[in-house]
Design a protein around this nucleic acid. Structure first.
Lengths: 249, 249
DNA sequence: GTGGCTGTTCCCCACACATGAACAACGCTT
DNA sequence: AAGCGTTGTTCATGTGTGGGGAACAGCCAC
């Protein structure tokens, strides 16, 4: 597959994005040599692509080190707000935040990872940004989506590994599969400190035409989400919210 | 410049991003032929790049039409949260929202456009997302940044045109330049329905080592921002906020 | 059915990308 | 301050590949 595809695709584009992705994964800035060696490509090639990406504004050069450029922020915003779920779910997420006085959001899946389309926080108690897991298996919205995904897709994702984030993370295929069955039955997913100690969440998948579009969640610290509120009230609110806008997509 | 640069940069990458940018600018999905004709490139070339970008997850193919993919959302988030201003300003913006009970944010400039690094809204009254101007000249944070930018950069940006958004937009170079001088003197910028009818905002530039890093703003509808609150109270709050974190960057 | 669109594939050649090696610039150690 | 290792940058080259035209196929409207 790759051999025939390579014939009809642009290799240079691929390497350029490999460079960008490498920069995205690193926390710190990085030099040409370092980047080239981690990607196992010649220095000069890395340099040429970095220069090109700089010129386009998607990579930023600070001194002799490179990092992600803000051009990507523009593109990313365009991509997020373009998704059909964004437009329909946004106002409902906002209302969830008001009603529950807790952070809420809407998540979609792409290539086995969770992507936040939109999230909002209660004003006086803003939560951390960018801390949500990219992994599906250890978050409420991720599991809600997984439970609705076709079996072969789930298998693919499981095969890529189930990293352990806390000691409650479901990191074996069998444990995860069993949980997903229960989630599919009930139509709701819970997260109890599986991606971060002290964090809880409830999520409901958004299904349309038998395809899962994403999931809506409400999150919060364990002390704000316990017993009936966590297990019944908030689930009920989310379910009715999702029902409401699933019909009028 | 372009001729010599073309020798040491990757053309294929450039066209790939041209394709992505074209998709970002269009509201609707687009087909190969249509895209190729607007970009004035051969169909087959457009097709090859689109296919490559699809494979990488940065473009999404729905039926026979193409649109931006969610891979860009990931990269965009990485880029935003990586900016030094993001980390330092975020919590202060959150506090501005609490204190003023109005939307606030932090903006940086890239390539003559305004990019929102972070913004937040009061819980019960969430504002529209993605509606802020990409233009610098008609928003409070944009003007705050312009006022601190070197003259040649300002000239470049003015040369690219000053689109009129409302009848209050400063759309002539002389009017804008005059205003920027006053903003530079006072260290604060006001926006009075210049980018959208009924919207007001106050912004303060963040300057470090004589270089402008970005601007922090508080926005709101005209009826929530008038007289002393608009002209003195909120400006004072923002200035003291910015002063506080400029010192400990 | 038919015609005019699309998207997709084919194929070939110029040429621009990938590459290693040479060069220059930095910064650390002494 | 000088030297040396490291890094970034440039150069030169052949070869793989991206660009582009044109042919093919698939859709939809009429």
């Amino acid at each position: 597959m790759s051999d025939s595809d390579h014939q009809r695709t642009v290799n240079a584009t691929r390497t350029s994005f490999t460079v960008v992705e490498a920069l995205a994964e690193r926390e710190d800035r990085v030099g040409v040599t370092q980047l080239a060696s981690t990607l196992d490509i010649p220095k000069s090639t890395a340099y040429k692509h970095l220069t090109t990406l700089c010129e386009l504004g998607y990579v930023h050069k600070e001194g002799r080190k490179y990092e992600l450029g803000l051009g990507l922020a523009d593109l990313g915003e365009s991509a997020r707000t373009r998704d059909p779920l964004y437009g329909t779910a946004k106002s409902h997420v906002d209302r969830l935040v008001s009603v529950t006085d807790q952070p809420a959001g809407v998540v979609v899946e792409r290539r086995g990872n969770a992507v936040d389309l939109y999230r909002a926080w209660p004003t006086n108690r803003p939560a951390a940004h960018g801390t949500n897991s990219r992994y599906l298996h250890c978050s409420a919205p991720g599991k809600a989506i997984l439970a609705e995904l076709p079996d072969d897709r789930v298998a693919e994702i499981i095969d890529r590994g189930l990293p352990t984030k806390t000691d409650r993370t479901l990191s074996t295929p069998s444990a995860l599969r069993e949980k997903l069955d229960r989630i599919a039955e009930r139509g709701i997913a819970f997260e109890r400190g599986e991606q971060r100690e002290g964090r809880r969440a409830v999520a409901v998948p958004v299904v349309r035409n038998e395809r899962v579009m994403g999931a809506v969640y409400v999150a919060g610290s364990t002390d704000r989400m316990k017993s009936k509120r966590f297990e019944e009230d908030i689930p009920g609110i989310i379910i009715s919210t999702v029902n409401r806008f699933t019909s009028d997509i």
